[in-house]
């Protein structure tokens, strides 16, 4: 697996390696980044938060397990869970093959401005580069 050459510029990112996509209906879609899936390796199991669950920003809310390790996912902002990607139950490996399509859950943020305050692609890239050494 090669390194990600370019991060999608339309997405927002967190320091805990989630990506966040602002949908037109005011919800956000959340997954894990190429960098995170590379670190974890082959995915075998995803535990998603319950639809309707209220989450605070940075609250542990989901688990992505690879053969190697289990990683917690954190709510990028405060809000409510509105959907989960049930496809990943049978095909968790989609997180490895296409991490920016394999979304894990959707939220409706309490405050849309919280999403804008997340990292942009270049800030996240700087963070990843600084973790490399």
């Amino acid at each position: 697996m090669s390194n990600s050459n370019s991060l999608p510029g339309n997405l927002k990112y967190t320091a805990s390696h989630e990506w966040v996509n602002k949908e037109t209906d005011g919800t956000i879609t959340i997954g894990i980044t190429q960098h995170a899936q590379e670190l974890l390796g082959d995915m075998v199991f995803v535990e998603s938060p319950a639809v309707g669950r209220q989450l605070k920003a940075k609250e542990e809310c989901a688990i992505a397990e690879s053969v190697k390790a289990a990683a917690d996912l954190y709510a990028p902002v405060t809000g409510v869970v509105v959907a989960i990607n049930s496809e990943l139950g049978d095909t968790p490996e989609k997180i490895n093959t296409d991490p920016y399509s394999a979304w894990i859950f959707k939220m409706k943020p309490d405050n849309a401005a919280d999403v804008d305050a997340l990292l942009d692609a270049s800030a996240y890239q700087t963070l990843v580069d600084s973790e490399a050494h």
């Binding site: 697996m1 390796g41 082959d42 075998v44 053969v67 190697k68 490996e93 490895n96």
Partner: peptide, 8 residues
């Protein structure tokens, strides 16, 4: 080497 691409 941990893996060369995919452990599975």
């Amino acid at each position: 080497p941990l893996h060369y691409g995919s452990q599975i």
